[in-house]
């Protein structure tokens, strides 16, 4: 009985939280439509503060930031949404548009990168699981059915290939944990040759530029790569966007 009551309470909490989120989302959308972008930003941020983690919230918040001329935050949230839906044309178009408006250079992904980013991390895991299940079924069939066993084993190459490609996809997304992505959120960000204040300036980073971390030291310096160049930057200039 106690368990049932607890379950009912949990379900009720979930339903109430969903209803509240729905209302806030609608209010934020109405504020955006009326051109009250600051209010829309506040409401979308409230959803995030409440623990909501849907890509739609990040995307809409990014739109509101863009309209409010805060390009760095817009790029940050577009990128956040992109991690969940890398194929979404709206996210890609707006992300590209925001970077262009900010005057930041968008790195051109290689063919391999284009392939592995066609699916998100969870989608790659889904493909891997599908491949694994298919491989299990085919192997079981090969064990149980003696006829045409050779062809069944040949068919096993398909799921093996699927699992290998998924592993490449997983590895790529895992790189975002190792070499994290950051967005420049402060003006006058200048990458230096060394992780020391007063080191020679290497290149300037525009506000809202998306950079990839290559190295870090314990004193709050991060070696970032932007437009093919590497330089050291203090973390106060950037905000980490990688999950």
């Amino acid at each position: 009985m106690k368990k049932l009551t607890s379950l009912a309470l949990v379900l009720l909490t979930v339903v109430l939280a969903s209803v509240a989120s729905e209302n806030t989302f609608s209010s934020a959308q109405a504020a955006y439509d009326d051109g009250r972008y600051a209010e829309a930003i506040m409401l979308y941020n409230k959803l995030l503060d409440d623990g909501v983690d849907n890509l739609e919230v990040h995307y809409n918040l990014a739109n509101a930031y863009f309209k409010d001329s805060d390009l760095a935050s817009a790029v940050w949230h577009y990128r956040k949404a992109w991690y969940d839906a890398p194929r979404d044309p709206d996210i890609r178009a707006n992300f590209h548009f925001a970077l262009n408006a900010a005057g930041a250079i968008e790195s051109q992904p290689s063919i391999t990168e284009k392939i592995v980013t066609t699916l998100s991390l969870s989608e790659w895991i889904m493909v891997a699981v599908g491949g694994y299940l298919l491989l299990t079924v085919l192997l079981a069939t090969a064990l149980l059915v003696k006829t045409d066993r050779r062809n069944t084993l040949k068919l096993c190459m398909i799921p093996i290939l699927l699992v290998l490609i998924s592993a490449a996809g997983w590895w790529h997304w895992n790189q975002h944990h190792l070499n994290q992505e950051w967005v420049v959120v402060q003006t006058e960000a200048t990458a230096l040759f060394g992780p020391v204040k007063g080191s020679t300036a290497h290149y300037k980073l525009p506000l809202a530029a998306l950079v990839r971390q290559r190295n870090a030291d314990s004193k709050g310096w991060v070696e970032v790569e932007y437009d093919g160049k590497r330089g050291w930057l203090q973390t106060r200039y950037i905000s980490r966007v990688s999950p």
Binding site: S18, F25, Q29, Y32, D53, L55, E56, N63, F66, K67
Partner: peptide, 12 residues
Amino acid sequence: IIYLKPSPKRWR
């Protein structure tokens, strides 16, 4: 920029 996305079907 492209317009807003509709409310998600399931809240995460």
